[in-house]
Simulated assay, not measured.
Amino acid sequence: MRRLLLRVFLVLALPVLLLLAWWVASDGSTQVYWPPLRTILRTFPDVWTGERLRADVLPSVLRLLAGYGTAAVAGVALGTLIGSHRRVRAVCEPVLEFLRAVPPPVLVPVIMLFAGIGDTMKIVVIASGCVWPVLLNTVEGVRAVDPVMLDTARCYGITGPARLRHLVLRGASPQIFAGLRQALSLGIILMVISEMFAASDGIGFTIVQFQRGFAIPGMWTGILVLGLLGFLLSVVFRLVERRVLDWYHGLRASARRSP
């Protein structure tokens, strides 16, 4: 119980301190674009009602999950293929480095030409940016699998899907989850950017509408919603990561305890 309370304290201490600092720094503000935090918090329940959550937050989350899931599947599949074969990696590496260097927001106008301005465009934008951390980390994770273990599996006749599932993907999973963690934060950014370009709903669209209508406290409440959404998704991701990589964290803990 004490350990749980300590963990909760460590998680909440810094956000609470930052909010207190924001409250104190903005308390006497009379600027239009820098309203006091108390004004923003007072506006929050009036803006983000249940209807607005269904109309704006839910579509954004669904697009994010669709694009992120697509990037995760494609990144792990292609990364495993490229990381497992040296010749494939040699052929693909120059192209991958070129495409990775192109900022995903730059592709939004191009994607709009082919996918229109609907949900498909937003999902493709999110997936096109999120795929690179997953892909590159998967490649490095697969390449780092212990060659002795690969030879041992080959000697025991463990090949095909069993070798891929129980050895390659399992050995590369810590690196894969590192890429998934990076892709999650990038996906939230691309979700907002895609909704600011062309949309009729979503968190990014709502923030822009408030800004254009000079509803500045409402605009700030949208930024708070994004922060809360990012925090909740991060918590869920850590729970999933902890469960999937329980064996890995156990190995690290035992290695630290050993003399």
Results as ranks from 00 to 15, higher is better:
60 S>N: 06
183 A>P: 04
74 A>V: 11
148 V>N: 13
168 V>R: 01
56 D>Q: 13
124 V>Y: 01
147 P>S: 13
146 D>L: 09
91 V>F: 09
160 G>F: 09
84 S>Q: 07
132 W>I: 10
140 E>A: 05
113 L>Q: 14
70 T>Y: 07
110 V>N: 13
165 R>S: 04
88 V>G: 13
117 I>S: 14
95 V>L: 06
161 P>E: 07
99 L>Y: 03
66 A>H: 12
93 E>V: 14
83 G>D: 11
182 Q>L: 15
67 G>M: 00
175 Q>H: 12
89 R>L: 09
57 V>W: 00
173 S>P: 11
98 F>H: 03
150 L>R: 15
89 R>S: 10
74 A>P: 03
176 I>S: 01
85 H>D: 14
172 A>Y: 03
64 L>Y: 05
116 G>C: 06
150 L>V: 10
55 A>R: 15
60 S>E: 02
147 P>E: 15
144 A>H: 15
101 A>C: 04
73 V>R: 10
64 L>R: 01
68 Y>N: 01
102 V>I: 12
63 R>Y: 07
90 A>N: 11
146 D>K: 12
157 G>C: 08
106 V>G: 14
133 P>G: 04
162 A>E: 12
89 R>Y: 06
81 L>Y: 07
151 D>E: 14
142 V>H: 00
96 L>R: 04
83 G>Q: 02
143 R>C: 04
174 P>I: 07
138 T>H: 06
107 L>M: 15
124 V>L: 08
140 E>C: 05
170 R>F: 12
145 V>I: 11
120 T>D: 10
86 R>Q: 08
70 T>E: 09
97 E>C: 08
102 V>E: 03
85 H>W: 12
59 P>W: 02
102 V>W: 04
66 A>G: 09
166 H>D: 04
165 R>V: 10
165 R>D: 11
151 D>K: 13
178 A>Q: 07
131 V>Y: 01
157 G>T: 10
71 A>C: 09
84 S>R: 14
180 L>H: 01
124 V>G: 00
71 A>W: 00
140 E>G: 06
166 H>K: 06
174 P>V: 13
57 V>G: 00
127 A>C: 07
177 F>Q: 00
108 V>Y: 01
76 V>F: 02
106 V>R: 14
88 V>F: 09
59 P>H: 06
55 A>Y: 15
111 I>Q: 02
78 L>H: 05
59 P>S: 05
147 P>K: 12
114 F>T: 13
126 I>T: 01
124 V>T: 06
142 V>Y: 00
174 P>S: 11
94 P>C: 06
151 D>V: 13
153 A>F: 15
133 P>W: 02
